[in-house]
């Protein structure tokens, strides 16, 4: 179980790197989307590992709220890009 969590942390490092080095805003949004999904899954795995209901509920809420916030932000950035042209 410990090894699985370490592997998850290593997958988390890839979008961190791309979010930092790519200069395109949509690449950063993709990195943000995948990180918000991956962190929620990691919280869920840890909650099962520790047998803690409270953290599990937080994981589910983070999963849905993170996605909702991302959709809002994507629409805002799209409006910004349209104004630039």
């Amino acid at each position: 179980m410990n090894g699985i969590l370490i592997a998850m942390i290593i997958t988390l490092l890839i979008p961190l790197y791309t979010g930092f080095y790519h200069d395109e805003i949509w690449e950063k949004m993709l990195a943000f989307a995948t990180i918000s999904c991956k962190t929620a899954m990691m919280i869920l795995v840890i909650s099962v590992l520790r047998d803690d209901w409270m953290i599990g509920v937080v994981a589910i809420i983070v999963l849905s709220v993170g996605n909702a916030g991302l959709m809002l932000l994507a629409h805002l950035i799209k409006r910004l890009d349209e104004e630039k042209i």
Partner: peptide
């Protein structure tokens, strides 16, 4: 604008650390 997206990313990781 890029800093804002990275701020969201930091928030996600901070939530992970708090939960852990």
């Amino acid at each position: 604008l890029h800093a804002l997206v990275i701020r969201g990313l930091l928030g996600a990781i901070a939530a992970l650390v708090d939960a852990v």
